[in-house]
Amino acid sequence: MTTNTRIVLAARPQGQAGLEHFRLETVPFEPLQDGQVRVRHHYLSLDPYMRGRMNEGKSYAAPQPLDEVMIGGTAGEVIESRHPRYSLGDWVVGMGGWQQYSVVDANPVGALHRVDPTHVPLSHYLGAVGMPGVTAWYGLVRIIDPKPGQTVTVSAASGAVGSAVGVLAKARGCRVVGIAGGPDKCAYVREQLGFDDCIDHRLHPDHLALAKALKAACPQGIDGHFENVGGAVLDAVLLRSNAFARIAICGMIAGYEGQPLPLLNPALILINRLRVQGFIVSEQMQDWPPALAELGQLVGSGRFRPRETIAQGIESAPTAFLGLLKGQNFGKQLVRLV
């Protein structure tokens, strides 16, 4: 191949994102410089944080530039190298973006990570044994810090992050209750991931109804909560939280299209002396090695079998991404490029 097909951000959404905000391009290969490698991507990761990057407003990271390749994690194979640490055929994970091939300056530490797909499938290095898994590990272990017998809840429980939170919490002797959308996702959370219970939020029209369901599923209250959604889910959890509960805020997908997400009863944070902490996993690099070691053992041993939704071909990425924002995926959302 001498050309690369990629997807760039064509325009910034004003409200809901759509296909018109992306553009498909084909560009010729450029020759490698010293220190660079060319990677053929086999998988592209699609993640909710990408929606926030499409906006121009202030956030924890710089906005996605217009007319440049959409940001995204990738897993693939080195097909050309002018760097002594990388050889043809090496399997690597990086931030190659929404494209078939990437050229990477391999000199900076962390630009690429060599991985072994012998016992852990390559795709899982973008999910359970990658950034989503480390996100789950950090929020649970460093912020929630659960003790055996405590109750931990997690929203978006069947997703890439939420599923890992539950498996890790069960390994620590906790009662784990998930919140997910639809009977199939809830059945997966209970029967395959081993959660103690799962609440289908689609059956509960508001935060009060959801709080009632949480009371039944968590008779001893909630000691720790991992939040991926926000909005009515967080309002319901606050009503059921015990004194000194810990809440790790990872995502607010309910507000990713730009609408504000006010709390209905923030006084509960004071009344129950809650610890509520947001975090960005890329700022916690010191915890990636122990997190990946534990997650790799769980997946490699078969004790954790992550679910994946895989779209085919680079052209499918925008549609798959928009579906992710609407909860149409089941588990980790990927695009297979090879």
Rank of each mutant, 00 (worst) to 15 (best):
A156F: 02
A156Q: 02
A157D: 08
S158T: 13
S158G: 14
G159K: 02
G159C: 05
V161G: 01
V161I: 11
V161R: 01
G162F: 07
S163N: 06
S163P: 04
S163M: 07
S163A: 15
A164N: 02
G166S: 13
V167A: 12
V167G: 08
L168G: 03
A169V: 07
A169M: 10
K170G: 13
R172F: 09
G173E: 12
G173N: 11
C174Q: 12
C174H: 11
C174I: 11
C174N: 12
R175C: 02
V176Q: 12
V177W: 10
V177I: 14
V177C: 09
G178C: 09
G178M: 10
G178P: 07
I179E: 11
G181I: 04
G181S: 11
G181R: 04
P183A: 09
D184G: 02
K185P: 02
K185F: 04
C186K: 02
A187E: 14
A187T: 13
Y188I: 09
Y188L: 13
V189F: 12
R190G: 08
R190I: 15
E191C: 07
Q192I: 08
Q192W: 11
L193K: 14
L193A: 12
L193R: 12
D197E: 06
D197N: 01
D197T: 00
C198L: 10
C198R: 07
I199Q: 02
I199A: 02
D200R: 01
D200H: 03
D200E: 04
H201D: 07
H201G: 03
H201A: 04
R202P: 00
R202N: 14
L203M: 13
H204E: 06
P205I: 09
D206W: 08
D206M: 09
H207C: 12
L208V: 11
A209Y: 03
L210C: 11
A211V: 03
A211G: 09
A211D: 06
K212D: 15
K212C: 03
K212P: 00
A213P: 02
A213D: 04
A213C: 08
A213K: 04
A213I: 03
K215L: 02
A216P: 00
A216M: 01
A216N: 03
A216Y: 00
C218F: 00
C218K: 00
G221T: 06
D223C: 09
D223V: 07
G224T: 07
H225R: 05
H225M: 06
H225Q: 08
E227H: 07
N228Y: 03
N228K: 02
V229H: 10
A232I: 14
V233G: 10
D235A: 15
A236Q: 14
L238N: 10
L238C: 12
L238G: 11
L238E: 08
